[in-house]
């Protein structure tokens, strides 16, 4: 009698269990996937080549020139537009005046001379008014133009000052980079020497093999992690390369570097890649 009821109860348990399972899988998925993605963002890839900054500097000047040219072109375009506007206004006014004259001529024919005389007077007055208005308009426009020109000049001056400042900054940076790169290169060759000294060439090593290792150091120079980023295809060779690094164990001189200038250490040696080849060994 209670069979269906019991089945129903089991159904509810199953449903709740399914819900719980899906929830947990979802959370685990989020945790693992989200975590690794975030980690990827944190990896700073810094350019280590001096040339890179050199190349960067040349186009900067170009860009400035281009900017100045663009500004000039803009100013010229503005001027042209203004001139066109002025001409149009003048034409309009002329047309209006003509129309008024024609109307008055017609009226003159119809009316008596007296009235004609009055009209002529009025006409003169009107004309004068129109002339005055035109003069005022012209004045305002001229003022505007002067202001605009002033503003443009100010802007250009500011841009020039900024460009100069940024150029100075980048030069400083460039110099600092160069210095640190030189410093780093000395230590790179030191690391090479140590690794070469500790490397046992396996029999199966051939010319043209190449393994890329990823090495992690701590500021004492201790190796805390070696992993093969790209295998050469020969396991023995990969292993020998890894073992050479492990055998070195600790790059003593790096401790001195990290106490001297920690930033250079962080940028270059906290985590770096090493290309390993049988005939030569270079960073």
């Amino acid at each position: 009698m209670h069979i269906s009821q019991r089945l129903r109860n089991y159904g509810i348990y199953g449903l709740a269990g399914l819900f719980s399972l899906v929830l947990h899988i979802f959370i685990l998925f989020l945790l693992f996937v989200g975590w690794t993605e975030k980690k990827g963002e944190h990896k700073p890839q810094r350019p280590k080549f001096v040339q890179a900054t050199l190349v960067q500097m040349a186009p900067k000047a170009d860009v400035q020139d281009k900017q100045a040219a663009k500004k000039k072109a803009q100013v010229a375009a503005l001027k042209k537009v203004e001139a066109q506007r002025k001409e149009k206004a003048r034409k309009q006014k002329a047309a209006e005046r003509e129309k008024a004259e024609r109307r008055k001529a017609e009226q003159e024919k119809a009316r008596i001379e007296k009235i004609r005389r009055d009209k002529a007077l009025k006409k003169k007055q009107n004309e004068e008014k129109a002339r005055k208005a035109a003069a005022q308009k012209k004045k305002i426009e001229q003022e505007k133009k002067a202001k605009e020109a002033e503003r443009q000049e100010e802007l250009q001056r500011q841009a020039r000052a900024q460009a100069l400042a940024s150029a100075l900054d980048s030069e400083d940076e460039f110099l600092a980079d160069e210095q640190s790169a030189q410093l780093a290169q000395g230590y790179q060759s030191y690391i090479q020497q140590r690794i070469i000294a500790n490397w046992n060439r396996p029999l199966s090593a051939r010319r043209g093999m190449e393994t890329i290792l990823s090495i992690q150091l701590v500021p004492t120079g201790q190796v805390v992690g070696v992993s093969v980023l790209r295998s050469s295809g020969n396991d023995a060779f990969d292993l020998s390369a890894q073992q050479a690094v492990k055998k070195v164990g600790r790059f003593d001189k790096l401790q001195q570097l990290s106490s001297q200038s920690p930033t250079v250490f962080e940028q270059n040696f906290r985590q770096f890649q090493l290309v390993f080849r049988p005939e030569d060994l270079r960073l």
Partner: peptide, 9 residues
């Protein structure tokens, strides 16, 4: 997981 099952039920 079991506790979530119980919660649902």
């Amino acid at each position: 997981m079991v506790s979530w099952l119980m919660i649902g039920q």
